[in-house]
Computed example of a mutant assay.
Amino acid sequence: MILGRFVFSAITFDEVSTFVGNIEPIFYWMVFAGFLAQMVDGALGMGYGVTSTTVLLSLGVNLPAISGSIHTAEIFSSGISGFSHYKFGNVNRKLFKVLLVPGIIGAIVGAWLLSEIGEEYANYVRPILAAYTLVLGARIIYTAFKKNKERKKIKMAGVLAGAGGFLDSFGGGGWGPLVTSTLIAKGRTPRFVIGTVSITEFFVTFASALTFFAMLGLSHLQVIVGLVLGGMLAAPIAARLVGKLPMKTMFIAVGTLVIIWSLRILLKAIGLF
């Protein structure tokens, strides 16, 4: 009901008719991008924002519009993904309760701040996050090859969720790379980390999207609908894969994705990408 009210208060019947009658080639690329991004995000607990942001940046869309469009689209794909993870038994309820409220607060603050000051200051935040996650990525891969994996106690998980929600909104992505990689680096089982982070992401994304909508309005409808359709198709498939992939494979895949994401941000920051 809440989602329906949100959507149909923002989109009129005339706008839907205009959309259908003026579908551009970019729409089909967005469906593909949404499918690919959600496959990666649903199976590994990160990558939706990074993949989608890369495509939209290449099309010349400004960062606040990118973040707003992605978070609006991600409401649907993350909702289906979270429900699928829950049905397949990939969710740790205790961890979910710890991450939920701080993640929502961080997302709202990040979206509000980005809407107010624009993307200038976000460019300073990304390299700091990337340096941190680069180290985490290396640790995750190292952990994959350790015979006895240590299970360290998670301290200040709420602060971690708050930072992840803030960076996801303010920096155009970061919830998965920061929260998922940190929890897995602590020795937590990837299946339950990915499932729990994914279902929490729905609420974080919903809070962020509502904030962007209130501050900036809704734009780039074809981009949003394309990402939604692609993500909704991929979400159940990706959630099912999490329970099937071997533990070592998941550690390596997550670690590799984190390293690639981090290096891309760092190289871009110094003008080499």
Rank of each mutant, 00 (worst) to 15 (best):
M1F: 12
I2D: 12
L3M: 12
G4Y: 04
G4Q: 07
I11M: 09
F13D: 13
F13G: 12
D14C: 14
V16E: 08
S17E: 14
G21S: 14
I23V: 15
E24K: 15
I26F: 11
I26P: 03
Y28W: 13
A33G: 09
F35Y: 07
L36E: 03
V40I: 14
D41A: 15
G42Y: 03
G45T: 06
S52N: 06
T53H: 07
T54Y: 11
L57V: 09
G60H: 05
G60D: 04
N62L: 08
A65Q: 11
I66E: 00
I66S: 02
S67C: 09
S67G: 07
S69T: 08
S69Y: 01
I70H: 01
I70L: 04
A73G: 13
F76A: 06
S78N: 14
I80L: 15
F83R: 12
S84A: 12
F88N: 14
G89R: 09
N90E: 05
K97R: 14
V98I: 15
P102F: 00
G106T: 00
A107I: 01
V109C: 10
A111D: 00
W112A: 14
L113E: 05
S115E: 02
E116Q: 12
E120I: 13
E120F: 11
R126K: 13
L129M: 10
Y132C: 14
Y132K: 13
T133K: 03
T133E: 01
T133V: 14
L134S: 08
V135A: 13
L136C: 08
R139E: 06
I140Y: 01
I141A: 05
Y142I: 12
A144I: 08
K146A: 04
K147D: 11
K147R: 12
K149G: 02
E150W: 10
R151F: 06
A163H: 03
D168I: 00
S169W: 00
F170K: 08
G173K: 03
T182S: 15
L183V: 02
I184A: 00
A185F: 00
K186A: 13
R188M: 15
R188L: 15
P190S: 05
P190Y: 01
R191G: 02
V193F: 06
I194E: 01
I194L: 03
I194N: 01
G195M: 02
T196V: 00
V197Q: 05
F202C: 11
F203L: 12
F203Q: 10
A207M: 00
A207T: 00
A209L: 01
A209S: 12
T211A: 06
F212Q: 05
F213D: 04
F213V: 10
A214Y: 03
A214I: 11
H220C: 05
H220R: 10
L221R: 12
V223Y: 06
V225H: 02
V225N: 03
L227D: 07
L229I: 15
G230S: 12
A235Q: 04
A235K: 04
A238C: 09
A239L: 07
R240K: 15
P246Q: 06
M247A: 10
K248L: 00
T249M: 10
T249F: 08
T249C: 07
M250N: 02
V254K: 01
T256S: 14
T256D: 06
V258Y: 05
L266Y: 01
L267N: 07
A269F: 09
I270Y: 07
I270F: 11
G271A: 05
G271Q: 05
